[in-house]
């Protein structure tokens, strides 16, 4: 074996590897350009469907700017507001808000849509995305669990034993997930209250 490194050989090897990588990157850029709009469209449709399901009778949703006030409320309650919408009915009257929050349960990234009507009462919630454990936390997606939030107002609590006016019953074995979802709902409630008190346009 030669001790000296053959520069030509190294160059050739490097060039081939570089060519493969360059072609790969170009190909990916092409596919990405084709699929990205679809991905965004899907996300929007999903969001739209979720909002329609939590806010009955809404015809249109106007996106609001996330102000520093909203951010502050969310941070204090330990979560984030991803998006905030105003729901309007067919005759353009404001009927409530739809707030999309991101909170942490057993794992990060529970994205919840909460519908809140003008009486500051929850009209429904839906979960857009979560990474919770199948069979336990992932049961938060079930209708029975989500329906518990309907009609709640103020601050929602989590009870391990039974549900009542202010508390929802946690999913057994997944208290952290239940807390995470509830957290998102509470953020949505305070943010909506803030919006309504501030007189949204």
């Amino acid at each position: 074996m030669a001790n000296k490194i053959d520069i030509k050989e190294v160059l050739k090897v490097g060039l081939i590897l570089f060519a493969i990588t360059a072609i790969a990157a170009a190909l990916l850029a092409f596919v990405n350009a084709k699929t990205e709009p679809l991905v965004e469209k899907n996300a929007l449709i999903k969001e739209q469907n979720a909002m329609n399901s939590v806010m009955e009778g809404a015809k249109s949703f106007d996106e609001l700017e996330i102000t520093s006030d909203i951010e502050k409320i969310a941070t204090e309650l330990g979560g984030e507001v991803e998006k905030a919408y105003i729901a309007k009915d067919a005759s353009d009257n404001i009927i409530g808000t739809c707030i999309i929050t991101k909170t942490t349960g057993y794992d990060v990234g529970i994205e919840t849509v909460t519908g809140v009507d003008i009486n500051k009462t929850v009209t429904g919630i839906d979960i857009i995305a979560m990474n919770e454990t199948p069979g336990l936390g992932a049961n938060a997606k079930n209708d029975d669990f989500r329906a518990q939030y309907i009609g709640k107002t103020g601050t929602v609590g989590v009870s391990k034993s039974s549900a009542d006016d202010t508390n929802i019953q946690a999913i057994s074995g997944a208290t952290k997930t239940s807390n995470g979802v509830t957290n998102g709902v509470n953020i949505a409630l305070s943010v909506s209250e803030n919006l309504f008190n501030g007189g949204i346009k």
Binding site: T21, A24, L28, A29, N32
Partner: peptide, 10 residues
């Protein structure tokens, strides 16, 4: 960001 996987593994 779409090159994440390929860049990270390299």
């Amino acid at each position: 960001v779409y090159l994440q996987t390929i860049v990270f593994i390299l």
